[in-house]
């Protein structure tokens, strides 16, 4: 009782906590941006020398650096950069195109891949997780649990190459390279994305399903579940109506982690299938020492993680009846 009264001491505990989480989210974003900026600035090697070649005179190098703003002290560069980033302007890339023009279409591709995968993976994972929790230790649960364990244990590039070998090289069902061009029809688009989607499905589905199952099974050992059984409620109703509402918090957070992975963690899959996404872009930018692009990509990746986890946090706060309905 004491705990509740402390939590409920503010006028709107949910609002207070949500605002607090938002503040923390912004703070982490600020810290992460500073880390990215400094870390990348201190990378060995110099872009100007790399572009202009070893024979460049110091004057040319200085002029080049001035043009790119590299001669200013780094705190000022950081503030300029962050100010621009806030309004979506990441400045010029070293290859003299706007960073946003380099990244924009690639980010759209990555988001398309992430969204398509998520639309399939999230409902399917939650559904299978519920089935496993309902038929715990029955054959269907054992099968799904070991299958997902296997798919989690395999590295994603391995799954990608196996799928490519079987479905593209041997059976010729899908293309092995997912080259996407603007102006392609939706059907064509999806057809070319099929193999990366499948690979990502294997990885995320398993993780989300296992966590959904574990969250539900954790709740299923609570006394109120036994009470529902003693009231004679059917098992499926118990899982859906009594256990699920109490497992929303942990399920939301595992979904958030996986969605963030779909945006920020797909580098390997994009490289394997030569899919023109943001991961590819970052890899290329690192190779070319295109610092502004690397920084922008890193910032987008971190923002995706922070924002999605923030949403999951807020969902689990809101799904707590003690906070939603204070005494």
């Amino acid at each position: 009782m004491t705990g509740t009264s402390i939590l409920a001491s503010g006028s709107h505990p949910i609002l207070n906590m949500t605002v607090q989480r938002l503040g923390l989210g912004l703070l982490s974003l600020a810290i992460v941006s500073a880390i990215i900026f400094t870390a990348v600035s201190f990378l060995p090697g110099d872009f100007a020398t790399a572009i202009l070649g070893r024979s460049a005179t110091p004057e040319t190098v200085a002029a080049f650096q001035q043009k790119l703003g590299l001669d200013k002290p780094w705190p000022q560069r950081y503030v300029d950069w962050l100010g621009g980033a806030l309004v979506g302007d990441f400045g010029d890339s070293f290859s003299s195109r706007l960073v946003s023009t380099v990244i924009g279409p690639r980010l759209a591709n990555t988001l398309a891949l992430a969204a398509t995968t998520a639309v399939i993976a999230v409902p399917l994972a939650v559904f299978l997780g519920i089935v496993c929790a309902r038929y715990r230790n029955k054959p269907v649960d054992r099968f799904l649990s070991s299958a997902t364990l296997a798919s989690i244990s395999l590295p994603e590039f391995f799954i990608a190459y196996v799928l490519m070998l079987v479905l593209a090289t041997k059976l010729h069902i899908f293309p092995s390279l997912s080259s996407i061009r603007p102006g392609m029809g939706l059907g064509e688009h999806l057809y070319r994305m099929a193999l990366p989607i499948m690979t990502l499905l294997f990885v995320t589905l398993a993780h989300m399903m296992r966590n959904t199952r574990a969250a539900l099974i954790g709740v299923m050992s609570r006394p109120y579940i036994e009470m529902a059984r003693l009231k004679g409620e059917p098992e499926m109703r118990i899982v859906l109506r009594h256990a699920l509402p109490n497992a929303i918090g942990p399920i939301a957070s595992v979904i958030a982690i996986n969605l963030a992975y779909l945006i920020a963690g797909v580098v390997v899959v994009e490289v394997v299938f030569v899919y023109p996404g943001i991961g590819q872009t970052m890899v290329d930018a690192v190779r070319n020492r295109d610092v502004p692009v690397v920084q922008a990509c890193a910032l987008i990746f971190s923002a995706a993680y922070i924002v999605l986890n923030l949403i999951a946090d807020i969902i689990s706060i809101v799904s707590n009846p003690r906070l939603l309905h204070p005494r």
Binding site: P223, Y224, E226, M227, P245, N246, S319, R322
Partner: peptide, 11 residues
């Protein structure tokens, strides 16, 4: 049940 606090579904 003994503990009504634990035996009612909090949600």
């Amino acid at each position: 049940a003994q503990s009504a606090a634990a035996s009612f579904n909090p949600a």
